[in-house]
Design a protein around this nucleic acid. Sequence first.
DNA 1: GTTGTACTATTGTCCGACAATCATGCCGGT
DNA 2: ACCGGCATGATTGTCGGACAATAGTACAAC
Lengths: 264, 264
Amino acid sequence: MSELPAKYSRRPRRTAAGAVPGASLEFAPIRIEPAYRKVAAALLGRITDRSISAGERLPPELELARQFGVHRGTVREALRELETNGVLKRERGSKLMMVTRPTRGAVAANVSRALSLHDVSYHDVWEALTALEPPIAGAAARERTPADLQRIDGLLARQTDDLGTDEAVELTADFFRAVGEATHNGVFMLAHEPLVALLVPSLGAMIDKVPQARGRITEAQRRLAATIRAKDAAAAQDWMAKHIRDFHRGFEIARIALDNRVGG
Amino acid sequence: MSELPAKYSRRPRRTAAGAVPGASLEFAPIRIEPAYRKVAAALLGRITDRSISAGERLPPELELARQFGVHRGTVREALRELETNGVLKRERGSKLMMVTRPTRGAVAANVSRALSLHDVSYHDVWEALTALEPPIAGAAARERTPADLQRIDGLLARQTDDLGTDEAVELTADFFRAVGEATHNGVFMLAHEPLVALLVPSLGAMIDKVPQARGRITEAQRRLAATIRAKDAAAAQDWMAKHIRDFHRGFEIARIALDNRVGG
DNA sequence: GTTGTACTATTGTCCGACAATCATGCCGGT
DNA sequence: ACCGGCATGATTGTCGGACAATAGTACAAC
């Protein structure tokens, strides 16, 4: 059946056990990388250095396998790696894989998961939000465009009392996102996303337990929006700081232990 | 050779083309997920909800394939996905895959790449550092332990004039990391890592072009360390802010355009 | 012009196989 | 009793080949 197993020949492995017995020379640890990782690294390199740019389509898997000189299964494993990194997206059927830029949501989801697995506490998240959000609000006040204002106002207009808990929470999260986008700073937009995402579940619990919270949230957001409209960065910082403190207080009133792990 | 192709039977596909002709009803798009994604989701779920905890070992691939009722290749693609997410680590040979928690470095690398691909500018990174690092320094001053102090001092002691550019830059980055760890806040530790990583390459260029930068950096770090030792959070914030401004000025002097893309 | 059909390209999944590696346990020599 | 070498089994890495399902396209039919 098999003529001769000459495969694997392109990856010469060190089978010779020719280690000098007494030598105490310093050897660098031998770095053996699986092929799928090398393929992934090669592709990722071409993407990060922009020789393949977003929106372009990759050759089909079989063609890639031919070019790299590996099996299609190996290429697929490499592609899967890039896909989870968010730099590739594939659609079913005959569409080719497309190079994309990782979406904020995907990156944020990874970060959230990592934070959650690292046993980060609510307190830690609050501390970070306290540090991060006021400057974000300030930057938003400085940099906002009319379009940003419009989006923020649109969100505020939807804040009514007869919303369900989930919608209210989602709307609050969207408010933070909108403020982040008004900064026109990709770092800010990405930075607070995982934090907001981590808080969303418990925010719902808090709102349910603390009836007055909804009103305070809406009020703070309106004030904040006004300062952003007025391009008053200092006031925006102050109101955002107050807004964050409010959340903190809500959690205390709802008796959510702040040194609990987030997420789950 | 093949008796009968009864495979694929466990995934019934809708072959019937029974679409109502004139109906203008709203249909939700049908979500069809590949099997490898479902397997990945199942495993990830068990990890994030802690029913499989870090350090445990997963069953071998063949066993997983048997349990999920899919082919080993499919399981492998799913595992690759988790591996990139950092929740699994595998070693060569007969060792089983081990559940791990994503390392900060891995997560940060993903974030850095995403930021870089999104054309974030130096200015954006500076703005974020200006917002983030002073509060981090303040938290470090409040929360530092003797061990943290020792690590920081160790790094400072290695800051001498006869270091190569690369070592000096790496030492500076490590200083930031050490301050971050002194906060004992996982969010802070993770948050500034990608930013520092993005700056490292250009920081080397800056140091080479601006001779006085090295001295200023060392001086600022010593002062900062002193405030952290004294647990003087306010002073720590101030010195960190100054430190960051210093970097900014260095870049201006070195004529590195601040609206350039970072990374690459 | 719209609708249906055949064809092709591509991805998703499966089957089966072997090489390389690591752990383990056995064995003989000291 | 301790040690290094060797056979063995388990597991991952990779390969070859196969087929089903889907999407796009070209073309004929109405």
